[in-house]
């Protein structure tokens, strides 16, 4: 394992990896679901660290804002409302083999499609930022860029939001 130099960069990579993987192990290994959701937040925080290392501060901030600030808190909140889920008796569900094989399959796919082609080839990793946040913003709304997918996603999210409101609304009496 010679040739790995300890620079601040590798140190923070190691830290992010420990947070991400450690948090993930905490999620699946915990019998208390509230703690599990806190570990999930730790894991997502580690992923935000990767984005910082990859010169993508915008994605890092969005990761923290959306995944920790919104989704993480929502999951924590939902779990807290269900007291029964804080004291699970069994560590493994009866479907554990399905989950294990699905994640193994995903790992193999990632290994051969993403990791293997660039393994050891450091030139594939960009040294400088490929573009600034301004470039990203312009690409999202310019006619040559991604304005159509952007708008489609926006419409989809709006529809989902309206649907959620309609579902959550109390049924009113017909005569009202």
């Amino acid at each position: 394992m010679a040739g790995i130099e300890i620079t601040p960069h590798t140190f923070f990579f190691l830290l992010s990896t420990i947070l991400t993987l450690g948090g993930a192990i905490g999620v699946v290994n915990n019998r208390n679901l509230v703690r599990g959701s806190i570990w999930l937040i730790v894991s997502l925080f580690g992923v935000a660290g990767y984005f910082v290392l990859l010169h993508a501060p915008f994605l890092a901030a969005v990761q923290v804002l959306v995944y920790i600030g919104a989704i993480g808190i929502l999951i924590t909140f939902a779990v807290m409302l269900t007291r029964g889920m804080t004291q699970l008796q069994r560590r493994f569900s009866s479907l554990w083999w399905l989950g294990a094989s699905a994640s193994l399959l995903l790992f193999i796919v990632l290994l051969f499609t993403v990791i293997e082609p660039i393994w050891g080839d450091l030139s594939a990793v960009p040294d400088a930022p490929p573009g600034s946040t301004t470039d990203l913003g312009i690409a999202l709304v310019s006619g040559d860029g991604f304005v159509l997918p952007f708008e489609v996603a926006a419409v989809l999210l709006t529809a989902a939001m309206i649907g959620a409101i309609v579902l959550a609304r109390e049924a009113r009496n017909a005569d009202e």
């Binding site: 937040i41 901030a61 969005v62 923290v64 804002l65 920790i68 600030g69 919104a70 993480g72 808190i73 924590t76």
Partner: peptide
């Protein structure tokens, strides 16, 4: 905004 949301947590 992102960091402030940690306070809620």
């Amino acid at each position: 905004i992102a960091v402030a949301s940690l306070g809620t947590l």
